[in-house]
Amino acid sequence: MSDVNCRPMVIPLSFVIAFMLTLMPLPDWAIHFRPAWLALVLIYWVMALPQRVGLGTAWILGLLLDVSQGALLGQHALGLTVVAFITLKFYQRIRVFPLWQQGISIMLILVVYSILIYWIYGVTGHPPGTWLYWMPIITSGLLWPWIFVLLRDVRRRCKLS
């Protein structure tokens, strides 16, 4: 872990893990509570290294997410691009918040993301007809402190900055 060559790998690897967590089968009752893993990891990297991870990365990740979810091509791409954009605007402010306040800001960003995705579902004719649709925002917000600490440690180990 202590050597330098984890550097080029660590960001892609974290996205790969986020993808796997998104694809992982969950029991039926838990399916609506799955946090938006990819959005969380993306927000972290945009916040920590805005010069490396930006809108382009977000867009490509979104396209891959669309394909892996069988969603409309571009749906999550648009969502994640907007997420990255908002994070880029406010990263300097969010960075210095205490963890719980960061969690709340992340939840606000994810509200925008969810509204966009919901809107696209609606436009294409099939809005998810359940309040559980909004649950990932809450679970993601609660998970944020752990993800933040974990990824920060990983980043420091690898001396990425």
Binding site: L55, G56, A58, W59, G62, L63, L72, L73, G74, Q75, A77, L78, T81, V82, I120, T124
Partner: peptide, 14 residues
């Protein structure tokens, strides 16, 4: 640019 591209993709796909 990316937002525009996503919108175009979505229309094409749908």
């Amino acid at each position: 640019l990316f937002m525009g591209l996503s919108l175009i993709f979505m229309t094409l796909d749908h």
